[in-house]
Design a protein around this nucleic acid. Structure first.
Length: 440
RNA sequence: GGCGGGUUGGCCGAGUGGUCGAAGGCGGUUGCCUUGAAAGCAACUAGGCUCGCAAGGGCCUCGGGGGUUCGAAUCCCUCACCCGCCGCCA
């Protein structure tokens, strides 16, 4: 969420952000400015009337005392009369206050509602562009692998080896759900444990978050109200299934006041992620590249505004380090203004080369949200030198998303006989096992 | 799910109708003292909105919402959460 004053002072910049990220029928900046003027005008009048009313009420107290102490009917009647006169004045004010309060509430509510739909403003370093096609590659690592044989696709490898079962996933839950079996499930567990261990070594504190969260939590990270249709919802209990651990972990410190000396705060979290992917049918649906439930390890930071851009680079590097240790060729791209997410000010995507599929697959998305989520989450810190509370900056990235890592890993490490070599760093997590072979 | 007790500032905690945005303490900032530190002493120290060039005002906020009242942290209703006991349960 952006600050109202910022929006009004930077109307053009906000307008450009809106246009780049996809204009929204909920937002009309002219109207927003108009509502702001209405709101302030109504508040000024309301406050003035309320002050007057407060003064009247304060006068009544002493008179009540006088009434109680009054000796004789005449004195009592006099005090009573004075009180009644004040009450009558108060009643008149009440009617006008109610009117102004209503006008104020109406303007404020409308303004707030609109504000909830205004996206974050891209950082000045974010390249312009309309779609994913315009995202520049900022660096590449490793060489795409060449095979002496015709490599198999991720879903063929998985199904042939017996480590992936999409048909039974569909039977049990529906399209977009799958079973990992045998060494496939074990490999997933190994990856998760290794990711978390690596992050812990890099200073991230591990948390295991709730998978169901309330509406306020989703509002805080920016999923609601805009992405309601992408969410699984348990109506009876008013709980949403998390689309990423970013959501509960960003809300970890919601409505809190941190101390500057405690920043940055770094967390890593494993969770299942649930996404309806409504309207996403068609592309990448074969196998496990786009599914309704998947596992992911997320890394996340709370920082001061001064350090967030440097922390963004290092967070991205932390995610990249995993790919390098797995020896998977990848590239980092910077999302252009048109491809940037709703809450993000800047995002790097990490894409791993899937040699059989012949595509770069996104396995991590590392973003700086500046104070956008912190404002929605009321998440502030007190500067060490004293002074007003400030909103923190929040950042997060995948480190990493499991299905696509499994898919690219299978494709990259496959051998002519259809088996898969286990990357060295993972072997200790699999009891020293060096390859995955066909299994029942 | 049932009954009972709670929710007050960065934190702890007092406060049962006006003099309360709120005692006291902790923490923090500054000053004095000290070679330095500690201790001690003193002052300051909630947030949001708003008016104003500023100085400085005004309004709102004691978990959320609603009500009673001229006036609510305080009384009533309701929701959420926390603690305890009972029931059920991986």
């Amino acid at each position: 969420m952006l600050d109202t004053k910022f929006i009004l002072a930077n109307l053009e910049q906000v307008r450009r952000a809106l246009e780049a990220k996809g204009a929204d029928a909920h937002v009309d900046l002219e109207k927003f400015a108009e509502l702001d003027a209405q709101r302030r005008q109504a508040q000024a009048e309301n406050d003035r009337l309320a002050a007057e009313k407060n003064k009247l009420s304060k006068l009544i107290g002493p008179l009540m005392g006088k009434l109680k102490a009054a000796a004789g009917d005449a004195a009592r009647a006099e005090a009573q009369q004075a009180i009644d006169a004040l009450k009558a004045q108060g009643a008149e004010l009440d009617a006008r206050i109610q009117e102004q309060a209503f006008a104020f509430a109406k303007a404020e509510t409308q303004q707030d509602r609109m504000r909830h739909w205004i996206p974050n403003v891209p950082h000045e370093s974010v390249p312009g562009g309309k779609s994913a096609a315009d995202n520049p590659v900022v660096r590449t690592w490793g060489e795409p692998k060449r095979f002496e044989f015709k490599p198999k696709y991720q879903y063929e490898l998985g199904e042939d080896l017996g480590i992936l079962d999409c048909a039974r996933g569909a039977k049990v839950a529906g399209s977009g759900f799958y079973f990992l079996c045998g060494d496939g499930a074990r490999l997933e567990r190994a990856l998760v444990a290794w990711f978390l261990d690596e992050h812990r070594k890099a200073g991230y504190r591990e948390v295991l978050p709730p998978y169901l969260v309330n509406e306020k939590t989703l509002f805080g990270s920016g999923q609601l109200p805009k992405f309601l249709d992408q969410m699984y919802y348990a109506n009876e209990d008013k709980l949403f299934a998390i689309p990423t651990a970013e959501v509960p972990v960003t809300a970890f410190h919601r409505d809190e006041m941190l101390a500057e000396r405690d920043l940055p705060r770094k967390f890593c979290a494993f969770s299942a992620c649930f996404r309806r992917e409504a309207g996403g049918a068609g592309a990448d649906t074969r196998g496990i590249l786009r599914v309704h439930q998947f596992n992911k390890v997320e890394i996340l930071k709370y920082t001061t505004p001064e350090t967030s851009w440097a922390e963004h680079e290092s967070l991205t590097a932390d995610a990249e380090a995993l790919l390098q240790k797995l020896r998977l060729p990848y590239r980092a791209i910077c999302l252009c203004t048109g491809d940037l997410g709703f809450s993000a000010a800047k995002t790097y995507d990490l894409e791993v080369w899937a040699p059989a599929t012949g595509k770069w697959l996104e396995v991590s998305s590392c973003s700086n949200f500046t104070d956008y989520q912190a404002r929605r989450s009321n998440l502030r810190y007190k500067p060490d030198g004293g002074g007003k509370p400030q909103f923190v900056h929040t950042l997060n990235g995948s480190g990493l998303a499991l299905p696509r890592i499994q898919a690219t890993l299978w494709e990259h490490y496959q051998q002519a006989d259809g088996s898969i070599v286990v990357p060295e760093v993972l072997r200790p997590y699999l009891g020293g096992q060096e390859q995955i072979e066909k299994q029942p």
